[in-house]
């Protein structure tokens, strides 16, 4: 059994088999960091296929779940060998009054599988909850999604509360969702408008670099 097999199992979303094989490869002395790097590349390729809809959401979700399962197995060993690079910490959720979360879930998955630590607050999330959770997590990003025009003001409210609390500069505020736009991001003073899930792993660090 090889790293190639592990790749295949993750790609096919076979979480349990992948976890067993990851354990076995560790025992065989394969470097956990190398395993993660390889699997991350695989996930990026799967992400590309999904972006073109050559595969669909269930497939990438299963793949992401398998990768997460393997990362859980490898994490203690990664810590011992210096740890996996964390690109940023994100709280993510769908704003107050909005119950639509498919887009948010895709962004969450793409971020998690690209080296971000993500706390998912779910949907219909109060603006203050975003902030309290971000403070508790010492997050770099507050990312909010809105699918309805009448729930978009929730994204503005997050920024307004951050300003009122005097902590606007502590977090990068990211917005997304079908009716949102760069124009809306500029209007409310968000740091980043994320139009597509696929672009998130590149765009998020770029904003952080401008801190």
């Amino acid at each position: 059994m090889s790293l190639e097999n592990l790749n295949k199992l993750v790609k096919e979303g076979e979480t349990e088999d992948a976890k067993v094989l990851a354990q076995q490869l560790l025992q065989d002395g394969i470097d956990p960091l190398k395993m993660i790097e390889t699997l991350t590349q695989t996930m990026a390729r799967v992400g590309d296929l999904f972006a073109k809809l050559e595969i669909f959401l269930p497939e990438i979700m299963l793949c992401g779940e398998a990768l997460t399962g393997v990362v859980d197995i490898l994490s203690p060993y990664l810590d011992a060998s210096g740890g996996r690079e964390i690109k940023g910490k994100v709280v993510i959720g769908v704003v107050k009054g909005d119950l639509h979360e498919i887009g948010k879930n895709i962004v969450k998955l793409i971020l998690e599988t690209n080296g971000f630590v993500v706390k998912d607050l779910g949907y219909d999330v109060d603006s203050l909850t975003f902030i309290k959770e971000a403070e508790a997590m010492k997050a770099d990003f507050i990312a909010s999604s809105s699918l309805m025009t009448t729930t978009m003001p929730g994204q503005l409210e997050i920024i307004e509360i951050l300003k009122s609390k005097g902590i606007r500069d502590q977090f990068k505020v990211v917005i997304g969702g079908a009716p949102t736009s760069q124009e809306w991001a500029d209007k409310i003073g968000a740091d980043l408008y994320c139009a597509h899930a696929k672009s998130a792993p590149e765009k998020f660090p770029a904003v952080l670099d401008n801190k």
């Binding site: 107050k96 009054g97 909005d98 309805m148 025009t149 009448t150 729930t151 003001p153 929730g154 503005l156």
Partner: peptide, 14 residues
């Protein structure tokens, strides 16, 4: 069509 504003106020769900 859907309104986003009413008499100058941004419409907020709920």
């Amino acid at each position: 069509p859907i309104l986003e504003e009413t008499f100058g106020h941004l419409i907020e769900s709920g």
